[in-house]
Design a protein around this nucleic acid. Structure first.
Length: 948
RNA sequence: GGGUGUAUAGCUCAGCGGGAGAGCACUACCUUGACAUGGUAGGGGUCACAGGUUCAAUCCCUGUUACACCCA
């Protein structure tokens, strides 16, 4: 016997372990040989992460799809894993070291520090995946991957080297977004521009050899130390005569040109702008156009470096601003100051650190080339976005894609597979400092040495791993370079040889060192759909499960991740990594605000699981997952669906109490009772609706259809109507109903399983204790298919019965008949069908409408309430109970309602245009509705006349 | 500044070219042998506003307003 209420906490862990032990999550579990495949790769959560409500939604949706397709018999893989999350993870470990007052990262050195991070990962990295298990995620944990696993790292190296060889990855000195706190470059996407109250400072620069001055406006006066020019618009009449002259930069004293460039906007400020190519993206381009050499005034921590006057060196950028302003003021260079709203680039994660455009050597991906096929895939429909509106977002990004800066000055991540050595004096770039060192890109060190060997001839290659600043490396490098330089001049070289008998050997050993930077975390994430399946090796999994089917994700990572997976997938496998991208909404609080720790409005999904159970939590998320709209999560909804779980549980309990045991080889189509034929037909329709909705990714429709059917149809009507059968003495009817009830419950458990896996699996086990043995767990049982089980005749009869019972109940309440009182029912004017229906459903009718007798008459007693249904009138003689005035009011109200309806339809039918242009079936429908309303009204009027 | 989306019951949300829906909340009644985490019945909406298209608009189009988000 089932308990009175279902206790999720007591059941969920046991059920989950049962699935694991049965191997139900394993790729291909339950699939028939040769079955179609269905695969999803999880958006790998950060190892540093813990489950938030967005993850809960994301993974609930994936799990629903996976369980649905698994039950449909497909060969299913849900590939789980985690992302190494370079910056976040490194920061956590660094913070931990600081808290424990242990040596910092730099003191420890790279190798020790990385060991430390791996230790941390081993201890804490699995948290979020364990949290997903609590939600019921049925991923194939035996295939768990991590972006820094050896296999995935191999994929990363392969991709890097291949793209490098194709010229699609290159190293360049460019302005990048620099994070002065972390001292690393970040990508454009990791920067968030936030509108801030700023100021516009107007500075008056003196013109060389003239009394004239030129006024420039800037929001960042401290960067004037790095100014290399002043630009005006070529058509700006005010300044034409100044172009070609020079200004003397105040404080610094540098002589810089006035140039003409269209970037200067005559409408903005004074129309003249200072050009600081090292610290502004627009200025950088202006500088390039005019061959101006950028002057970098900052260190990697955004303090002023030694290119600036001594008194400013070492100052923080904001401190420097104040000091510069004071000095400019004192020099009367500062003319005036305006308040201005400005966009300040912040670190997208912390939203605290101001990002600095900074000139460094970095690695870039030529995203423009990779984007072309990725763009075409979506345009040509090979990959579809759901909802479709996101395709535009994707296009807008892809059509304007910028080079992707992929190097990060961090330690935790995939170290860039590039090795550097000194250039030979025969190299055309030997004296070109901007060209940088000679670079060898290879998947392994051995391969890099081979490449180097072919460049350096038979010199000995020595790889230094202690870093570019290690003394022995610096020494070896300078020895080599000096020798190469000295060899270029015959005199120098012969003098050297004379002094040093070993001079010829001084450049016989070449020092090589590996690039110390690591790759952007998203670089490895971009390979996730195929790297997790063993690529670059041609594994069976790759052949079977790639390309995947659906990618389920939030729109916030459409650029970070989706776009890049498309690019890499197409480039390296020749196929789109998925045919559908399902973008789910953002979960907000019930007031529509974004959840955040600082606002304190975070709903923790694990707390929901603890309090209401995983099933209720999942069902809520599914029921609210309408496409293209953010969801506001209200706890009351979760509570409501918890009640639904209880309702289902109790329905099963009722069936159990009434001997509803499954019957071997039961054929629902052989049923004779309308009640049973009706519920089977309704089940068929519910199955069809839920299946279609899931096929369309309309999770809310699927969930609601299942809910309506289970509660509104099965519990509210079928079980209620079955009660008299169970307590009656028609044994054949009882047996048929018991078998049908058990059959329908089975279908319900299957239908609900993707949404509520735990309670359904538990009930599947409980109901399996009697009747024929269950062959397998619910999770791998077959999805119901009841096509052709509909029964329109039974449907019509039960619709009628429901309407009659509801009608009588309604009258009883309005007439204030005590709920416990049993009353008589008289049937007037019933035809054959109604008569048969009344007789067939007599016990149900009597019970649910609380009647004590049903009789036929043509003689309506006075003081009765009357109900119109079909051709018959149902009369409730309520002498003594009934309030005649109330009944008259009720009838008049109903008559008025019908009149309004008739008038409305008449207006349409009287319109010639309508008759001429509307569809035939629409007109016909209106006519039918009118006739029905007219008939009801006539009989209501008749009923009213009987009352007086 | 450019773009996208949303506006429907007190709240959270579905829906849709031809009869305004659900859950929660609310009101009344009911411990009827599954379930009070329940049952029955009910009240409650100018479908944001203004135009337009259409025989017909909550739905399609345009504009306005408000809110949200994305990009610069």
């Amino acid at each position: 016997m089932l308990e009175k209420t279902y206790d999720p906490a007591a059941v969920e862990t046991r059920i989950y372990e049962g699935w694991q032990e049965a191997g139900a999550f394993k790729a291909g579990a339950g699939a028939k040989p040769g079955a179609e495949t269905f695969s999803i790769v999880i958006p790998p959560p950060n190892v540093t992460g813990s489950l938030h409500i967005g993850h809960a939604l994301n993974n609930t949706i994936q799990d629903i799809l996976i369980r649905f397709e698994r039950m449909r018999g497909k060969d299913v893989l849900w590939q789980p894993g985690t992302d190494h999350a370079g910056i976040a993870t490194q920061m956590i470990v660094e913070r931990q070291l600081a808290e424990r007052q242990q040596p910092g990262r730099r003191e420890m050195g790279r190798e020790k520090f990385l060991e430390r991070v791996w230790e941390w990962k081993a201890e804490s990295g699995g948290t979020i995946l364990n949290q997903l298990r609590r939600l019921g995620a049925s991923a194939d944990w035996s295939r768990e991957r991590f972006t820094m696993d050896e296999g995935l790292s191999e994929a990363v190296r392969k991709v890097f080297v291949t793209l490098y060889e194709k010229g699609l990855i290159y190293r360049a000195k460019r302005l990048v977004n620099w994070h002065p706190g972390l001292e690393t470059a970040i990508s454009d996407l990791e920067v968030e521009n936030i509108e801030t109250n700023g100021k516009m400072w107007h500075l008056r620069y003196p013109i060389e050899g003239s009394e004239e001055t030129i006024t420039v406006a800037t929001t960042r006066p401290e960067t004037m130390l790095g100014d290399v020019a002043v630009a005006v618009h070529p058509d700006d009449e005010r300044y034409k005569h100044l172009v070609g002259k020079h200004v003397i930069l105040p404080i610094v004293g540098r002589r810089i040109p006035i140039i003409a460039d269209e970037y200067a906007d005559p409408e903005l400020g004074s129309g003249a702008v200072k050009i600081t190519p090292a610290h502004d993206f627009n200025d950088f381009e202006v500088g390039q156009r005019h061959g101006l050499k950028p002057i970098n005034i900052f260190t990697t921590t955004a303090r002023l470096n030694n290119t600036v006057p001594a008194e400013y060196r070492g100052l923080d950028r904001f401190e420097a601003r104040d000091r510069i302003i004071s000095e400019l003021e004192a020099l009367s260079v500062l003319v005036w100051v305006d308040d201005k709203k400005i966009m300040v680039p912040y670190d997208e994660k912390s939203k605290v650190v101001v990002i600095e455009p900074f000139l460094t050597d970095q690695w870039f991906v030529n995203a423009e080339v990779l984007a072309r096929p990725a763009l075409a895939s979506v345009k040509e429909g090979r990959t579809k976005f759901v909802p479709k509106a996101y395709e535009n977002t994707y296009y807008a990004w892809m059509e304007n894609i910028k080079p992707w800066c992929i190097s990060r000055q961090l330690w935790w991540g995939h170290q860039i597979p590039a090795w550097y050595g000194p250039r030979l004096n025969t190299d055309p770039d030997f004296n070109n400092r901007d060209a940088g060192p000679k670079c060898f890109v290879a998947e392994t060190e051995a391969e890099a040495i081979r490449l180097a060997q072919s460049y350096y001839g038979n010199r000995k290659i020595e790889v230094y791993s202690a870093g570019v600043n290690a003394p022995d490396y610096a020494k070896a490098l300078s020895t080599f370079e000096t020798a190469q330089r000295d060899r270029m001049n015959a005199d120098t070289w012969s003098m050297r040889k004379h002094k040093d008998p070993f001079a010829e050997l001084s450049d016989s050993k070449v020092p090589l060192h590996r690039d110390e930077d690591v790759l952007d975390t998203w670089f490895s994430s971009a390979l996730w759909p195929f790297s997790t399946m063993g690529w670059p090796h041609q594994t069976p999994e790759l052949a079977k499960y790639y390309p995947t089917d659906v990618l389920v994700t939030g729109f916030d990572i459409i650029f970070f991740w989706v776009a890049r997976m498309m690019m890499m997938g197409l480039e390296f496998t020749g196929t789109e990594p998925f045919h559908t991208v399902y973008m789910h909404a953002l979960v907000r609080d019930e007031k529509g605000q974004k959840m955040s720790k600082t606002k304190g409005n975070v709903i923790d999904p694990l707390e929901l699981v603890d309090e209401y159970g995983a099933d209720a939590t999942r069902f809520t998320l599914a029921a609210m997952a309408a496409q293209g709209r953010d969801m506001r999560l209200a706890i009351a909804r979760v509570e409501g669906y918890r009640n639904f779980v209880t309702k289902l549980w109790n329905a099963a309990r009722f069936l159990e109490m009434n001997g509803c045991t499954r019957v071997e080889a039961f054929d629902p189509r052989a049923n004779t009772l309308a009640l049973n034929r009706w519920i089977v037909g309704s089940t068929a329709r519910a199955v069809a609706t839920v299946t279609a909705a899931l096929d369309d990714y309309k999770f809310n429709e699927a969930a609601n259809a299942a809910y309506d059917f289970v509660w509104g149809t099965f519990c509210d009507w079928y079980i209620e109507l079955a009660k008299p059968v169970f307590t009656g003495d028609d044994e054949a009817a009882k047996a048929e109903t018991q078998a049908t009830a058990a059959f329908v419950l089975d279908q319900i458990l299957k239908l609900l399983h993707p949404f509520m896996p735990f309670v359904t699996e538990e009930l599947w086990a409980e109901t399996g204790k009697t009747g024929p043995a269950r062959e397998k767990l619910l999770i791998i049982s077959e999805w119901p298919d009841l096509k052709g089980f509909e029964d329109t005749e039974a449907q019509a009869e039960l619709d009628w019965l429901v309407a009659l019972i509801s009608g009588i109940r309604s009258v009883r309440q309005e007439m204030n008949v005590p709920a416990g009182a049993k009353i008589k029912l008289l049937v007037v004017g019933a035809g054959d069908v109604t008569g048969t229906r009344v007789e067939a459903n007599l016990s149900a009718l009597t019970r649910l409408a609380r009647l004590d007798s049903v009789d036929y008459t043509s003689d309506v007693p006075r003081d009765s309430a009357q109900l119109i249904l079909g051709e018959a009138t149902f009369v409730l003689p309520l002498a003594g109970v009934i309030d005649l005035d109330a009944e008259r009011t009720r009838l008049k109200r109903d008559i008025a309602k019908e009149t309004v309806e008739i008038d409305k339809i008449d207006k349409k039918l009287g319109n010639e245009q309508f008759l001429a242009k509307a569809a035939e079936e629409v007109i016909e429908e209106q006519r039918t509705r009118r006739a029905e309303a007219e008939d009801r009204r006539a009989r209501l009027i008749e009923a009213l006349s009987r009352l007086s």
